[in-house]
Design a protein around this nucleic acid. Structure first.
Length: 125
DNA sequence: TTGTGTTTTATTGCCTCC
DNA sequence: GGAGGCAATAAAACACAA
């Protein structure tokens, strides 16, 4: 299924950007740590194996940073993801999920945008 | 307060690339 | 074969009218 998705390969170029320039997170580690505490405080049911889908919303701070990174780079390389996850006190997986979902949202938004435009311009192209 | 619709996070399954 | 991508979907959290 990468046929369609990889068409936005221009985004892939950002893999070569320096980690810091992409992540661009200043020292927010304290706040991030706070957030991290929030994350793990209750998930102590000892069901790591079981899909304990305890959904926690990310903090405003985390989302702000994720958004700002996403603006510059919609695809993160492994190192960048690890760094960002550390900075924000999140799990690497969570960062991956977030970017995945964010890309999907962006795509849908673009699609809706185009559709609205074409409707305004008289329907079918 | 609660029933319902929307948004956000997480999982699963399949595909491609190295 | 493993890692990471997307699409589809589930489920929790949130927003809001009645």
């Amino acid at each position: 299924m990468d046929n369609g998705s990889q068409q936005e390969s221009s985004d892939l170029h950002v893999h070569h950007l320096p980690i810091v320039s992409v992540i661009g997170v200043e020292d927010h580690t304290e706040e991030a740590d706070d957030a991290a505490v929030d994350y793990h405080d209750d998930g102590s049911e000892g069901q790591d194996e079981v899909s304990n889908k305890r959904m926690k919303r990310h903090t405003d701070d985390q989302i702000k940073h994720l958004e700002s990174v996403f603006e510059r780079c919609t695809y993160l390389g492994g190192n960048q993801r690890v760094e960002l996850a550390k900075k924000l006190g999140m799990e690497e997986r969570q960062v991956k999920f977030w970017f995945q979902n964010r890309r999907t949202r962006k795509k849908v938004a673009t699609w809706v945008d185009k559709r609205q435009l074409s409707v305004r311009n008289g329907g079918s192209p």
